[in-house]
Simulated assay, not measured.
Amino acid sequence: MDDALTTNITWLAPRVALLDALAEESNLTRAAALAGVPQPTASRWLNEMGARLGTPVVHRAGRGIRLSPAGQQLAESGRRAANELRLGYRAALAEADPEQGHVSLAFLHTMGGVRVPELLAGFRAAHPGVRFTLVQGASEEIVQRLRDGETDLVLTSPLPADDPGLETRALAKQRLVAVVPAGHPLAARKRVRLAKLAEWEFVSLKTGFGLRRIIDGLLADAGCTPRISFEGEEADTLRGMVAARLGVAILPESEPLPNPGTVEISLEPPAFREIGLVWSADRPLLPAVRTFRDYATESR
């Protein structure tokens, strides 16, 4: 914006309220009182505005005073700006209210079926006025959204480590299981070792997903190099691939029941992924965000 225009707008802002009052009262004494300024100051402001604009903002009408066309334009613009400012102020007050604010929560696709809905339902029962924006994505993607200030909280796994810009809080451990098609040679087993599971082709999440990193680490520790036939972005898609006999998978235990056409087998030794909340260490949390964080961490 031009510097001279910015200066004029800054100068005009408190004076436009006087024009708005004149539009209502048509009397300088009463309008000055409404605007909260002495009458001599109000008279000076009107003269100064006319001089800056090069055209009067008021004209006499008998014993009263009326706005000129230029004054009416300014008063109407000021009224619209005041209404917007009023709405913004109310919205800002709502954000500062732990019972009326807004929370932006990002989470993994694998948590959208049961875990997140149950968490939100419990919280909203106690805090019905809080609004939410929900975002799903891969672990690296949603953590980057947090770093960029696009979301308030992230529910993810694994938790980012050694990042001084992030705060983390572990909430729960989720059991990982082998998922095989119904009728598969391993389907009757109660437990299976990774080395045995790796004899079959795998379907897996794409690189960049937190669960993929966990699974790759488990297989590497077991000395296994699986043959991956398909890669996807959602656990439900992978379960469908398993049911279609396109491979086996390692996934979080289904909530509440395994998909039709699949069987879930415990891993030997047992394997888990840690789920937790992440938030910025550099930005203060708004009251509603802090209330939800505390609820999530206390109800784990």
Rank of each mutant, 00 (worst) to 15 (best):
Ala106Tyr: 01
Ala42Arg: 00
Asp97Trp: 07
Ala296Ile: 06
Ser266Thr: 06
Val103Asp: 01
Phe292His: 03
Thr156Phe: 02
Leu119Gly: 00
Val263Pro: 00
Gly210Cys: 01
Leu211Ala: 06
Pro284Gln: 02
Leu28Tyr: 03
Gly208Leu: 00
Leu159Gln: 08
Pro284Gly: 05
Glu264Asp: 06
Ala243His: 05
Leu28Asn: 08
Ala17Pro: 02
Leu53Glu: 10
Pro117Trp: 10
Ile250Tyr: 02
Arg63Pro: 09
Asn8Thr: 15
Ala81Thr: 09
Val154Arg: 01
Asn27Ala: 14
Ala281Met: 07
Leu218Asp: 14
Val203Met: 04
His102Gln: 15
Ile228Tyr: 04
Ile228Thr: 15
Arg52Ala: 12
Ala4Leu: 15
Glu76Gln: 11
Ala198Tyr: 02
Asn27Cys: 08
His59Leu: 08
Ala178Phe: 03
Leu53Phe: 07
Glu24Val: 12
Glu118Pro: 01
Glu140Thr: 10
Thr291Tyr: 04
Ala249Glu: 04
Leu5Met: 09
Thr110Ala: 15
Glu199Gln: 13
Leu155Asn: 02
Cys224Asn: 01
Ala31Gln: 04
Val278Thr: 05
Met1Ile: 09
Thr225Ser: 13
Glu84Phe: 12
Thr6Gly: 10
Ala222Arg: 00
Ala4Val: 11
Ala106Thr: 03
Arg193Ala: 12
Ile214Phe: 00
Gly101Trp: 03
Val248Asn: 06
Glu298Ser: 13
Pro69Met: 04
Ser280Asn: 05
Glu95Tyr: 05
Ala125Ser: 14
Pro160Tyr: 04
Gly165Ser: 13
Pro160Glu: 11
Arg245Gly: 05
Asp3Val: 12
Gln39Asn: 10
Val135Cys: 08
Leu211Arg: 00
